[in-house]
């Protein structure tokens, strides 16, 4: 936590204890990974489904739609979140984009002073929980599983 504080007056900027800009990106990647897995399983069922092909087509379509909704909402949310986390941790008036943290020498002096106090909390950057996306993901998997179980039992 004293990484920034040790920089002193000249201050090559050191990132905070956990570079805040990467958390939204990691989470966005996790959503993308999961959405891709969902799409793969949906299409797998479609490939195999036999005489019940139309039922699976519907479910796979729903799964892909859920995927697209999640991704579309996620892009905007994570762009906003990246900015918000940087503002909270760096106490800088100008929003640093997540990629530019390490390479901004002008931020060194102030970050050195504020890094100890503001960097740890990052608390004025709320992330509203993604309730709708979570619900969409659970529903998609449950629907996919239920359809797969019905097809397996009935064929």
């Amino acid at each position: 936590m004293s990484l920034g504080g040790g920089a002193g007056a000249r201050g090559v900027p050191l990132p905070g204890p956990s570079d805040p800009g990467l958390q939204p990106e990691r989470t966005a990647l996790a959503w993308t990974r999961t959405a891709c897995s969902l799409a793969v399983v949906g299409l797998l069922g479609l490939r195999w489904s036999g005489p019940f092909g139309s039922a699976f087509l519907l479910v796979a379509g729903f799964a892909c739609l859920a995927v697209l909704l999640v991704l579309a909402r996620g892009r905007r949310r994570f762009a906003r979140l990246g900015h918000a986390l940087h503002d909270g941790a760096g106490s800088r008036p100008g929003a640093l984009s997540p990629g530019a943290v390490a390479g901004s020498p002008g931020a060194g002096g102030e970050r050195g002073g504020n890094g100890g106090g503001g960097g740890e909390r990052g608390g004025n950057s709320p992330a509203r929980p993604a309730s709708r996306s979570v619900l969409a993901m659970v529903s998609a998997v449950a629907l996919l599983g239920a359809t797969a179980a019905v097809v397996v039992a009935a064929v």
Binding site: S18, P20, Q23, P24, R26, T27, A30, W31, R33, T34, S37, L38, V41, L81, A84, L85, G88, R121, G122, G123, S125, P126, A127, R128, P129, A130, V134, M137, V138, V141, L144, G145
Partner: peptide, 22 residues
């Protein structure tokens, strides 16, 4: 609301479980 990083970590854990379920 907790620190944004905890909310995001919770989401990532949920997504890992979802991938297991899939």
């Amino acid at each position: 609301e907790p620190d944004a990083r905890f909310t995001l970590a919770n989401e990532r854990t949920f997504l890992a479980w979802i991938r297991t379920a899939l």
